[in-house]
Design a binder for these strands. Structure first.
Length: 271
DNA sequence: AGAGGTACCTGGCAGC
DNA sequence: TGCTGCCAGGTACCTC
């Protein structure tokens, strides 16, 4: 489920409950996540304080006293603050315990998520080292995408979903941003003009910001057993709308597969 | 180096 | 009511 806005919303939801808190224990019910949790991870974390939590791309970074916890939600992961001792359910694989009435519970049915402890700065970690700029930061602008795309024949949708180019643009928001900027998802990245990349960056920022703002309305859901994390109000204009009317021209939205991923577009409005 | 395919895993749904 | 096959919002890793 999580794309960048969901990860950002998760960060904002859990931060006030955990910042400054000391980890008392780690409860691991299933260590087989994307990479198996090492046996000693609990004793590494125990006693360390969460000094801050930040986000880089779709990774959450827990800054501890002597290291960092790198957490990725994968396709189906979610985090919740448990304050009432609610029993774990089937896919609740890990609890980070902060006290008798406070723990962070990691749920992930598909187990594509990851939890990594490192004593080196996360930016130097293999997973984060090669990543491109944040889409909401100044470094990513039309000029940047334009220059990185020259001579590339790859479909522009795959190009903007490549984390080495720009991070955090997942399958849904790639379709949405291309629709809003009028660019056909299959167009070769290297053949798109600078002004069109400027429009694309503006559209990427717009959809991500709007979704983060919508996610903000469900922050309270990060606490309590009835938490509905993962369900956010989204105003999707093309994604999942195959056969429905384009909101701009009334024509039928179509679906394509690009790099094995469903891609939605309007053949009339996107060139 | 760039581009594409495969793999990881469970659950939900359509179709028979 | 099964069963089967397909699909799902991510990304590391492999090959060409």
């Amino acid at each position: 489920m999580p794309e960048l806005p969901e990860v950002e919303t998760t960060l904002r939801g859990i931060h006030p409950h955990l910042a400054g808190r000391r980890i008392q224990a780690l409860v691991v019910r299933n260590r087989d996540l994307r990479w198996p949790l090492p046996k000693g991870i609990g004793s590494s974390l125990r006693g360390q304080t969460v000094n801050n939590i930040t986000r880089r791309a779709k990774y959450l970074l827990f800054e501890l006293d002597r290291g960092w916890l790198i957490l990725h939600l994968g396709m189906s992961g979610s985090l919740r603050i448990i304050q009432n001792g609610a029993s774990p359910e089937k896919h609740d694989h890990v609890d980070i315990v902060f006290g008798p009435d406070r723990l962070l519970r990691f749920r992930d049915p598909r187990r594509f998520g990851a939890l990594i402890y490192t004593t080196r700065p996360p930016a130097e970690h293999k997973l984060l080292r090669e990543m491109g700029p944040e889409p909401l930061g100044d470094e990513c602008d039309g000029e940047y995408l334009f220059s990185r795309s020259r001579n590339r024949k790859q479909a522009v949708k795959s190009f903007i979903m490549d984390q080495r180019i720009v991070v955090g643009v997942g399958n849904i928001y790639a379709s949405e941003a291309l629709y809003r900027s009028g660019i056909h998802p299959q167009r070769a990245a290297g053949k798109i003009s600078l002004p069109r990349y400027e429009a694309l960056v503006a559209a990427i920022r717009q959809v991500l910001r709007a979704s983060i703002a919508a996610g903000g309305t469900t922050l309270r859901d990060f606490v309590g057993e009835s938490g509905q994390t993962g369900y956010y109000i989204r105003k999707l204009q093309v994604y999942g709308r195959e056969g429905d009317a384009c909101l701009k021209c009334g024509g039928a939205i179509r679906q394509l597969r690009i790099g094995q991923r469903a891609s939605y577009y309007c053949p009339r409005c996107q060139r």
